[in-house]
Amino acid sequence: MIGLSRVGNVRKLLVVLYTALMLGANPAAADVSALREGDMKKLMLLGEPVAVPEAVLLDAEDGEHALADYKGKWVVLNFWATWCAPCRREMPSLERLQAAMPELAVVPVATGRNAVEGIRRFFEEAGVKALPILRDPQSQLAHAMGVMGLPVTVILNPEGQEVARLIGDAEWDSDSAKAVLGALVAGQ
């Protein structure tokens, strides 16, 4: 009978081997992976792009928007909520990222029950002025994309497919984040 610690070690080894095989099969991912430092070490690069489900997002005036509106651009899609403390820390860095890399579309989506006034107050308190207010009030997109906790940030390629995901908060305007995103954009 194999001990529990040995099973854990075997699992860790399998994860390492799987990651190595994935990166070996995708040289671009290996190049980007080497740039990950700090918070970006949590960024999971996918071996192959994954289709993202269609969903209707609402703005502050209940106008409808779709992720397809951003096709042709790299997208930093951030799932967050007004009650989420890590989201409060992270949101200003997303705005600074948008200012530093205007070729990207930074798309924050308030998922679940988030009143528009609460979102506006959150943005004001966080000093966010340039990012759009978009809502996923029934969490349909979040659930369809397997978002289980907040914040979660998903990187979409210009075809609208998921290529990377980071669970938890991060400093999105860090040198490492900008290097990783710049490498993804350059490697198109």
Rank of each mutant, 00 (worst) to 15 (best):
L21S: 05
L43C: 04
S139M: 10
N9K: 09
L97N: 04
A110K: 00
L57I: 02
R11G: 07
L45G: 02
E103Q: 15
V107C: 03
M101T: 01
D31W: 10
R96N: 04
P86N: 06
L134W: 13
S33K: 10
Q188D: 15
T82Y: 07
V107A: 04
L181C: 10
A34R: 14
L67G: 02
G72V: 04
A60S: 13
V106T: 10
A85P: 15
L97C: 07
V116T: 07
P108H: 00
V116D: 05
V154K: 02
T19C: 07
K178Q: 11
D169Y: 02
E171I: 03
V15R: 13
Q138V: 00
V128H: 11
R165Q: 03
W83G: 01
A142R: 01
A34K: 07
M44R: 15
E171P: 04
N9Q: 12
H65V: 00
T111I: 01
R165P: 06
I167H: 06
L14E: 11
M101D: 07
L181W: 07
A144D: 09
L43A: 11
I133M: 15
R11N: 03
E48K: 15
S33G: 14
E64Y: 02
G24I: 05
A28M: 13
L23H: 13
N26Q: 14
A55R: 10
C84H: 04
A105V: 01
L94S: 02
Q161Y: 10
V109W: 06
V116I: 10
A20P: 11
D69R: 08
E117G: 06
N78D: 13
D62I: 00
P108V: 00
T153I: 04
T111Y: 06
Q138N: 12
E54P: 03
G187T: 02
G149C: 01
V15Y: 09
G112K: 10
K42W: 12
C87F: 04
A99T: 12
A25Y: 10
E171K: 08
E159V: 00
L17I: 08
L67R: 05
V16M: 11
G112Q: 08
L181A: 05
G160P: 06
V32F: 12
A60L: 01
A81W: 13
M22A: 13
L46F: 15
M40Q: 14
S176E: 04
W83Q: 08
G182M: 09
R113W: 14
R135D: 00
E159S: 12
R36P: 03
M148P: 00
